[in-house]
């Protein structure tokens, strides 16, 4: 899965440019921003992911990989 779509969501929520190896918290992310990211991922990419996943995988490339796994899982929208 390409990081572009996810990077766009991070950028909108955090208000700063985002690269693949950026860390969500280092960019100023916090609980409310994490919530907004997860909500946007669900709406725009159709992938349901728990906030916990972002908190445990705060690097963009890593988080995107997790999303790809969740998105490909059977039974997911």
């Amino acid at each position: 899965m390409d990081t572009t779509a996810v990077a766009e969501i991070w950028q909108e929520v955090l208000g700063v440019p985002v690269k693949d190896d950026d860390d969500f918290f280092a960019l100023g992310g916090q609980s409310l921003a994490a919530m907004e990211v997860v909500a946007a991922v669900r709406r725009r990419l159709g992938i349901t992911v728990r906030v916990r996943v972002l908190l445990e995988h705060p690097v963009l490339a890593d988080f995107t990989e997790r999303l790809a796994a969740a998105g490909a899982a059977p039974g997911r929208p």
Partner: peptide, 16 residues
């Protein structure tokens, strides 16, 4: 974190 997850889901629901 469970509270956050629930609120994230509510957040997405209301955004839609």
């Amino acid at each position: 974190i469970d509270r956050l997850d629930a609120n994230a889901e509510i957040f997405g629901y209301f955004a839609d």
